[in-house]
Design a protein around this nucleic acid. Structure first.
Lengths: 166, 166
DNA sequence: GGTTTTATGTCAGCCATGTTGACCAATATG
DNA sequence: CATATTGGTCAACATGGCTGACATAAAACC
């Protein structure tokens, strides 16, 4: 990093370009999540519930521990939203087969329907943008986002989808 | 969008690829903001304070209204963090010259120092990633993030940096 | 078999940051 | 001049993070 000559190595390393990246990430994340938030509000749910539903759909029979590791929050934070989701019949729990302390989490049909609606909504936004941008833009987008991750998160994502780094 | 043939139009429109995008955005945003959050915690400040400091630095003598429009939060949410920042001498206010109801906001030297430290930290992460990815990845990254924005946000960003859409 | 570790849950309570609604003051406008 | 708009304050509430203490059951270990 010490020997960078902006004019040669790339104008994209100018401070103003870096600030643009910071700002785009902030606004894109905000706008992107806001859309699902509005739907969730109609069900009396929040963003935290969405994350749980999303990752339970992604990996059925996930345990509480695994979910905690993915979300990076505390037991109590998860317990609050999870017990709410169970009470409202979006998620169901059963004891683990090998280790009966574990609670394997799955979506109920109602939960699956909600997850599908939310994910379709978000996928639609991505699909339109990807489609407009083309394969190269998508490749650049994922490349840079991956680069912004902390190393442990990168490892976690590999576990989530083994072909992650294509 | 109805006539897409994934095999031709792009594998990046597969559901699994779209989910990957959703997840990358979530984790990248989380990891990216967490770094600054740790610094801020040492000053007894939070992410909301950071946003204010950032945009006041970006546009000195910004008014409260303009800041509200950029941040997209309510007056009260802003007033809380802003009055804290003023009390702790990170931000100073003066009455507007034309309209004396307005409060023009600026960073104090202390505020400017903090902003510089945080922005340098975040720019460093971006610069390393951009440098590793190259100009094409950066172009794709910004293209896709811009596509994910709501239309009003896109207009707002143009006001913030007129050459935004290059 | 008894002890320790692990997986999970529960309770109380704190903090940061979002929300709404009532309200005040300064300015702009018909 | 009267009223509407704009800029800002305060009180009160909701969400979703956090900590720490503790309970229980199952599993693992010696």
């Amino acid at each position: 990093m010490a020997d960078i000559k902006p004019a040669q190595k790339g104008l994209f390393l100018r401070k103003s370009e870096l600030r643009r990246g910071i700002e785009l990430l902030f606004f894109a994340y905000r706008d992107f999540t806001a859309e699902a938030d509005r739907v969730l509000a109609g069900y009396g749910l929040g963003r935290a519930h969405h994350r749980v539903i999303y990752f339970v759909a992604r990996q059925p029979d996930i345990t509480v521990s695994e979910l905690l590791a993915i979300l990076g929050i505390t037991k109590q934070s998860l317990a609050r939203v999870l017990s709410h989701l169970v009470a409202e019949r979006f998620v169901e729990q059963r004891a683990g087969t090998h280790d009966r302390r574990q609670r394997l989490l799955r979506l109920t049909p109602q939960g699956a329907a909600l997850e599908a609606m939310l994910t379709d909504l978000q996928c639609k936004r991505f699909a339109e943008t990807y489609n407009a941008g083309g394969a190269e833009s998508v490749a650049g987008f994922t490349q840079i986002l991956r680069g912004l991750l902390d190393e442990p998160t990168r490892a976690q994502l590999l576990k989530l989808s083994p072909d992650h780094g294509d």
